[in-house]
């Protein structure tokens, strides 16, 4: 299935990646090959699809779920240790020139 540049732009918007016109053109051929590869499954298995079975194929019994017991949260400094925090918050400056 061929993919249009417009479709690539829509996907890029969903994926929050920037694909300008040139990159779209460059990418569309390669992406087309990958889609064709994925399409092999459609060549093999046609027809309707039933419900998706669970991913791990395993279940957990309700009784084995986590009990509602509070655990101590982490120190604010730790939570923010990978950013330059601003008053205890995760900050993002809205515009940076």
């Amino acid at each position: 299935m061929a993919i249009t540049e417009k479709e690539i732009k829509t996907l890029a918007r969903l994926a929050r990646l920037d694909f300008d016109d040139e990159r779209c053109r460059e990418f569309s051929g390669e992406f087309g090959e990958i889609i064709a590869f994925a399409d092999r499954i459609n060549a093999q298995v046609g027809g309707a699809t039933s419900d998706i079975r669970e991913v791990g194929g395993r279940e957990i019994a309700y009784g084995d779920l986590r009990d509602d017991e509070v655990k101590e949260s982490l120190l604010n400094e730790k939570v923010l240790s990978n950013v330059q925090s601003e008053g205890g918050f995760f900050p993002v400056r809205r515009v940076v020139k």
Binding site: I8, L11, A12, A15, F31, I34, I35, Q44, T49, V55
Partner: peptide, 29 residues
Amino acid sequence: VQKRIMLGTYVLSSGYFDAYYKKACIIRE
């Protein structure tokens, strides 16, 4: 990585989900 994110986004997006992701799950089964 960007290529795989794009492929993953594609197979989950509306209109393609059934033909790719869902079918892949069925074949996995």
